[in-house]
């Protein structure tokens, strides 16, 4: 009797162990699916776009013929746009983070700002486009210009920068703040000379990652009127402009197959820029991680 029972248990045990193994393989395969699609995507983009990628492509303006079209206006437009976005979002974002971490009293208003930032981060980017359309394009009368796009994007990534900067400021050890106050430093002196220098690597890393999100954004810029075809570089804040994702979107939508190769080449350039930005962020993080 007992032996039979034991055998049953053993049998069931074997089943349980085997089931565990099977599902482990299943879980591993599920993980692989995401990775496989990542590889497929890169492979697809590379094979489609590489043929059209050349120095001419990078240095040419858009053209009505696939062979002559280039990403130059988009590339430079994206760079200009990012400069505007960086200036506004980093200054305002870091200032907000310092306010929340160092000055704000623990009260309802501060909580409200925090929750508000959290919620802003979840608003779809296209809604920011509508905000920009109402305020920057029409109400401030900037029209479909670089500054309207830049301000819209700055607001879009502001929550990301605030959160990253908050984390960076928070991670500055209390001991060195104490040391500064103990020397008779005022609050602002302590912030400017001790906290910010120590937090800058973290802030920079966060800012670059936020900007790399902005550089790939398309939807809000469509709403605030980035141009699809443009033959000059923007020469002022109030100039018309285009950016890489808009060019890619425009080419993707054309029916002739050649345009998809042109779009593919554009995606390669865009991904290369993203890779560059993320590498810089990783480098900064690795360089300064050992400190503090």
């Amino acid at each position: 009797m007992l032996g039979q029972n034991e055998q049953n248990i053993k049998k069931r045990m074997e089943g349980r162990v085997a089931f565990n193994k099977i599902l482990m393989v299943l879980f591993g395969m599920a993980t692989a699916v995401g990775l496989v699609f990542l590889v497929l995507l890169f492979y697809r983009v590379l094979t489609q776009g590489i043929g059209y990628l050349s120095l001419d492509y990078i240095m040419n303006f858009p053209a009505p013929y696939p062979e002559k079209a280039g990403i130059y206006a988009g590339l430079i437009g994206s760079v200009f746009l990012m400069i505007i976005v960086a200036i506004f979002s980093v200054i305002i974002g870091v200032a907000t983070a310092i306010y929340l971490e160092e000055y704000a009293a623990k009260n309802k208003f501060t909580d409200f700002i925090r929750v508000n930032i959290q919620n802003l981060a979840g608003v779809p980017s296209i809604v920011f486009g509508l905000l920009g359309l109402t305020f920057f394009v029409y109400m401030f009368n900037f029209g479909y210009t670089l500054i309207a796009g830049g301000l819209t994007m700055a607001l879009l990534i502001l929550p990301v920068i605030v959160v990253a900067a908050q984390e960076a400021v928070r991670s500055v050890p209390a001991e060195i703040k104490e040391a500064s106050y103990g020397m008779g430093a005022s609050k602002w002196q302590t912030i400017a000379r001790v906290i910010l220098p120590a937090a800058i690597p973290g802030i920079l890393t966060g800012a670059i990652i936020a900007l790399s999100r902005a550089i790939g954004e398309t939807a809000p810029l469509i709403i605030v009127g980035a141009a699809t075809a443009i033959y000059t570089l923007p020469d002022s804040l109030l100039a018309k402009y285009t950016v890489m994702p808009i060019q890619i979107y425009n080419w993707t939508g054309r029916p002739q197959e050649e345009w998809q190769y042109v779009a593919g080449a554009g995606i390669i350039v865009l991904l290369a820029v993203l890779l560059l930005m993320n590498s810089i962020a990783v480098l900064i993080r690795n360089k300064y991680q050992r400190r503090l």
């Binding site: 398309t218 993707t252 995606i267 865009l270």
Partner: peptide
């Protein structure tokens, strides 16, 4: 895996369509 979340959506659109 997190790289998947960082790829611009216009690129995904292209990937889906083509």
């Amino acid at each position: 895996l997190e790289v998947l979340a960082g790829i611009p959506t216009v690129v995904y659109g292209y990937f889906a369509l083509t």
